[in-house]
Simulated assay, not measured.
Amino acid sequence: MYERVAPERFDSLPEIPEPSENPLLIGHDEAASLLASAYRAGKLHHGLLLAGPPGIGKATLAFHLANHLLSNPDPSSAPERFVAPDPASQTFRLIAQDAHPSLLHLTRPFVERDKKFKTVITVDEIRRIQRFLSLTPHDGGYRVVIVDPADDMNISAANALLKSLEEPPPRTVFVLITHSPGRLLPTIRSRCQVLRLQPLQDRQLMQLLSELGAADESTGAELASRSQGSVRNAILLSQFGGAEITDILHKLVNARDFDPAEALRLGDAVSGRERDVQFAIFNRAVLDMIAERASSLAISGDGIGASRAAELWEDVNTTIREAETFNLDRKQHAAGLAARLNTAFRG
């Protein structure tokens, strides 16, 4: 049975390794090669923006880069390519445990008083960077700051990060993970080298699911076809009722005659105790449906419709954050969003 070493995060899944403790990096060979070559040549950019859909391995790549830098403090003698980290090595264990003195991983903080994670990365989290950078590197090597995901920063946190990016200390690299780079401040994007990572190919996704023990050969192909190149999507679909939740949502949203009773039944399925993952699946599915519609409208040349869909995405994302922040009724939240999308998509 898998034993968690890394601290629990806001998006942790039971029995699935965190990116920081995952020695497997499948896909993204071109990006990994580019980063390794740049480091060896002494030309690694101080700000890296890893962009792409959720669940395709962006954070895993970030931690493999951190392992590469911290295991090889002299760039000129570093390997020309990433070497799979040894889970028994001290560097790997310290990174996995969030205890390496040259690595700072920033994500949504856990509030002990409320027994839950915040819905944003706060300015207090970003201010930890200055304290971290004020310390002398223990081996004279690089220091790595990972913000995961940068999309979750509120405006105060984003402005605080910008100050660090504008005046980066030597031998320091910032790795920002983003699902939606357009939502970041343009000034942050302009100070980073953007690496756009692509969804995993079906064979890559099936290999990774097999390695993680999350699917066998008989189910892997079907999961791959529905997961849009995201291993996280595949795991949610197969192990947490994600397939049923998304199927019912699509049926409700696309129905000519909206069924309020069915919407409330869906609300029941994603609310209640110990259903945080199911609630997150529903919210992600709603946002993905809107994003897909915006993309489809843009491709068809309907700029006004695409703009309206983009505005809807932002508004719904705010609604989701408010539901999480203020612990609003999840059943009514889910039923209400299903009805809202049905109206918007038929309009």
Rank of each mutant, 00 (worst) to 15 (best):
A31H: 00
A41F: 00
N72E: 07
T60W: 05
K43N: 15
G57H: 06
I95G: 04
S89M: 04
Y39L: 13
L25Q: 07
K43L: 14
T60S: 10
H45G: 14
D86W: 12
R81I: 14
A62N: 02
S33L: 13
F92G: 05
D74Q: 11
E80M: 06
L69I: 13
D29Q: 15
E80R: 13
G47N: 09
A59T: 12
T60Y: 00
F63V: 01
L65S: 08
A31Q: 03
G27C: 10
L24R: 12
L70K: 09
D29M: 01
H28M: 10
P53C: 10
H68F: 14
G52E: 05
S71G: 12
G42Q: 13
E80A: 14
G57I: 03
H28I: 07
G47W: 08
S77W: 04
P85L: 03
L25R: 07
N67L: 06
P73G: 01
L50D: 07
A38G: 04
L49M: 10
R40P: 02
E80T: 15
P54D: 01
L50A: 07
P73A: 02
G27T: 01
N67P: 08
A36G: 08
R93V: 02
G27N: 07
V83E: 14
S77Q: 11
A84Y: 00
G52H: 03
